[in-house]
Amino acid sequence: MADDASSSSACTGNLVDNSINQDELIMKQQREIEKEISESIPLVGDLEELASLEKEYNEDPVYLLKIKDLASKYKCIRRTRPDGNCFFRAFSYAYLEHLLNDKDEYEKFHEIAKNSKDILVALGFPQFTVEDFYETFMEVVQRVGEQAGGSPEAIEGVRTELHEKFNKQGYSDYIVVYLRLITSGQLQTQHDFYQNFIEGPRTVTEFCRQEVEPMYKESDHIHIIALSNALNVGVRVKYMDRGEGSQVIAHDFPEGSKAIVHLLYRPGHYDILYA
């Protein structure tokens, strides 16, 4: 799912080579099918009843029980495209949407966002490109700020605009890139702490270059911890899988924080939840 679209580039001549086995071809085909499915799903979808989840699992008692549990706390869900960027896209959408109704939180965030570029440049990120992402990111943030805490009609207008921007590949991906950079910046600033989360011999910087900064790389706990710390935003993730019990387990990042963004995690994917 996290596959770069460029991997679909033709691999002519492979058939001549017997050493390239069937499995490779099957896996490649599977990746292409996944990509096709993925692209048919909007980057960020419309608000749906939580019960819409039941359709996906109508013969699965484990999941149905868990959806019931989830429904006791959440009413709606907003799906995101499973392209490996879903955590960043879901997070930024849900948070900006929240800021529309929370002027104080907006001011706090605006200050952090404003300073983020200098932190990244000081860390050695190329100023030229960081500025490019920063400007588009701030353009979207400031549109939210202009109407934050305003009249219901004004808020609704910006909400529609936000939804359109998030579904335009160009804007949407720029926001994802900038959040990836902030995440990488946080990991590198506090590398002593985050090194403990990284398995194997990779340094924090190597991890950032391979798993955080490239697009379509899926997010793990470490990404969520770093981003929620960098922006000082509470994130609650509800983990729904085939594990034992009928409860959907929640996890708050950073630990003990008050959650503003609520996400549903199903293996490999994040969607947005609404109370």
């Binding site: 996290a2 596959d3 770069d4 460029s6 991997s7 990120f125 190329p126 030229f128 490109t129 960081v130 992402f133 991906d173 890139v177 950079l181 270059r209 391979q210 900064e213 490239p214 697009m215 379509y216 790389k217």
Partner: peptide, 15 residues
């Protein structure tokens, strides 16, 4: 791409 890694390790902050 990053050497020894898959091609999707291209980074948008490169130019």
């Amino acid at each position: 791409s990053i050497s020894g890694y898959h091609p999707e390790t291209w980074q948008p902050s490169w130019s």
